[in-house]
Simulated scan of single mutants.
Amino acid sequence: MHLIALSGALRQGSYNTALLRAAAALAPQGVTVEVRTLHGIPLYDGDLEAQGMPEAVTTLREAIHAADGLLMATPEYNNSMPGVLKNGLDWLSRPSGEGAKLFGGKPTAVLGATPGGFGTVQAQDALLSVLRAFGNDFWMGGRLMVSRANTVFDADGQLIDDKVRAQLQQFVEGFVGFVQKRSA
């Protein structure tokens, strides 16, 4: 099984990218988790789209299409998902109807990390709202919202909190089981 893990953050020291790297390390045997970011995707512009799809969009689209499932990690900015994540989804949904072709029926799980105390509940809800329009097949067996991420990861982005590690492992194993049932 091959999963794409897409981080909705660009920051080099992103807690969400670190969370996805930790998820990859905790994946069951026989499961590969490829961590991807939205680097290189320009701001959506219809004039730019008319000139052709940017290579970063095409590459990410091909990776998502080939994957058995999709893990999406989102930070929470101002009670929602960050603009860079929405922008990436806007590009992936172009031309019109492409979002449903790419994401329709794709097993998907959403998680997130933030230094704040309330987790990423509002960002995840905003992200689910967008993905619902594409017809993703959501795993609703668990939600993972890591609060106070600055205390959960060390300066090198390594997960150091055993409780969060156990929650993340349970989350990844649950999602893998969901994907396996969908492909059986």
Rank of each mutant, 00 (worst) to 15 (best):
V152M: 00
V146G: 02
G97H: 00
D154L: 01
P54L: 09
L20I: 03
V84E: 09
F118L: 15
V31G: 13
F171I: 10
A23W: 09
A63Q: 11
S14D: 03
T108Y: 13
R94P: 00
P28A: 06
I64T: 13
Y15M: 05
R94G: 01
R36C: 15
A27H: 07
L10N: 15
T37C: 06
V164H: 08
E98H: 01
D68Q: 15
L19P: 07
A123D: 08
V172I: 10
E62F: 00
G104L: 07
K181N: 04
A23Q: 04
E49A: 00
E173A: 12
F118W: 15
K163F: 11
V57M: 09
G30I: 05
R94S: 02
G174T: 02
E49I: 00
L3Q: 11
L3I: 15
H65F: 01
E76P: 06
Q170M: 02
D90A: 07
S129R: 12
L127Y: 13
L144G: 14
S96H: 05
A133S: 12
T17N: 10
A100F: 11
Q124A: 06
D156P: 04
F103C: 13
D154Q: 00
L10S: 14
D161T: 09
A63K: 15
I4T: 11
V176Q: 05
D137K: 12
V146K: 03
T59F: 02
P42M: 08
V31N: 14
D125N: 15
V164P: 08
R182A: 15
V84N: 06
L168C: 10
P107G: 13
D45P: 00
T108M: 12
V130Y: 04
M1R: 12
K86W: 14
D156E: 09
E55R: 03
V110A: 04
V33I: 14
V152F: 01
T114K: 14
L85K: 10
G117E: 14
H2D: 13
M81K: 02
L111I: 05
G40P: 06
Q122F: 08
G142C: 05
Q180C: 04
F175A: 12
L127W: 13
G119E: 08
V110N: 02
L60R: 12
N150W: 00
N78M: 07
L127H: 10
G104P: 04
P107W: 02
G52H: 00
G88S: 07
A126Y: 08
E76I: 08
I64R: 03
T114R: 13
V152W: 00
E98C: 01
A113P: 04
W91P: 04
I41W: 01
G105C: 13
P95A: 03
A27K: 11
M1F: 09
D90H: 07
L111D: 08
L38D: 12
K163A: 13
T58L: 08
V152R: 02
T37R: 05
M140T: 15
Q29T: 11
A67R: 02
L60I: 09
F138Q: 06
L20D: 00
F175C: 15
H39Q: 13
L111P: 09
D47F: 00
S147P: 11
W91H: 04
A126T: 07
P75R: 11
S183N: 10
I160C: 10
I4F: 10
N136M: 12
G117Y: 11
A123Q: 09
P42R: 06
D162I: 07
E49D: 01
A5S: 09
D154T: 04
L131Q: 09
R61M: 07
L26S: 09
G116I: 11
H39D: 15
R21K: 15
G46Y: 02
